[in-house]
């Protein structure tokens, strides 16, 4: 699953550590999500969406249905 976390973070001039602190997770987890190596749970995705004032679909792009 692709996501725009890195872009959204860069727009706000936040580091991975800053975002991790806001979402109550480790920096490694933010890094893994940004690289697409780990898909966050729904609660974490909602938390990120609330933080950026966006919807989940604005941040995370589901590619499983795309052909």
């Amino acid at each position: 699953m692709k996501n725009r976390l890195k872009v959204l973070r860069a727009e706000r001039d936040w580091t991975q550590a800053d975002l991790a602190a806001e979402l109550d997770v480790s920096r490694q987890t933010i890094n893994a999500i940004e690289k697409g190596k780990f898909d966050p749970s729904l609660p974490l995705a909602f938390k990120a969406a609330r933080l950026f004032g966006l919807t989940i679909e604005d941040i995370f792009i589901d590619e499983s249905g795309a052909e």
């Binding site: 109550d24 997770v25 480790s26 490694q28 987890t29 780990f38 966050p40 974490l44």
Partner: peptide, 8 residues
Amino acid sequence: AQDELQQK
């Protein structure tokens, strides 16, 4: 106390 990736 760990986050979801660490738990995984």
